[in-house]
């Protein structure tokens, strides 16, 4: 007997190329933004390595610092820095779209929501740098 379902049309699905995100700048930007998460994970790994070396003692810590001076690690960290700043900027610029704050019935302009993020970013970065660099 013929199985009738065999002859039913499959639901219509256009095949999308695996590289669809290369076809447009906006798509590429989206994928780059998502890819920044990999570098965020790397920074966590780096932080954990630092904490471990710090606990292990001066010799272990010095060794890790030497490793961080190798061209490969410097290149990786330069690329990671680019991506994490890209993440920060796209994140802050997205904040006004995620939060629709209304004041006296009128929607607050995007800049009024994004700007405090940038101010906080600068202040926090300065505070962290100050703690690490003083004395």
């Amino acid at each position: 007997m013929i199985n009738p379902t065999e002859y039913l049309p499959k639901s219509y699905h256009t095949r999308i190329s695996t590289y669809w995100w290369l076809t447009r700048w906006a798509y590429l930007k989206f994928i780059l933004r998502e890819a920044s998460s990999v570098f965020v994970a790397w920074i966590v790994v780096l932080t954990l390595l630092q904490i471990r070396a710090l606990t292990d003692g001066p010799a272990e810590y010095a060794e890790l610092q030497k490793w961080l001076q190798s061209p490969l690690l410097l290149a990786l960290n330069a690329v990671s820095f680019f991506f994490v700043v890209f993440h920060a900027v796209t994140w802050f610029n997205l904040a006004p779209k995620a939060m629709a704050i209304r004041v006296r019935g009128k929607r607050l302009p995007g800049l009024a929501i994004a700007a405090p993020n940038y101010v906080a970013w600068a202040a926090i970065s300065a505070a962290v740098a100050w703690i690490l660099l003083r004395g």
Partner: peptide, 22 residues
């Protein structure tokens, strides 16, 4: 996590990954 990464990670990576090693 997005907020924490955006606010804190650039300064940490800049100092420990670039400014201190270089």
């Amino acid at each position: 996590g997005g907020v924490v990464s955006a606010m804190l990670m650039p300064v940490h990576l800049f100092l420990f990954g670039l400014a201190f090693p270089l």
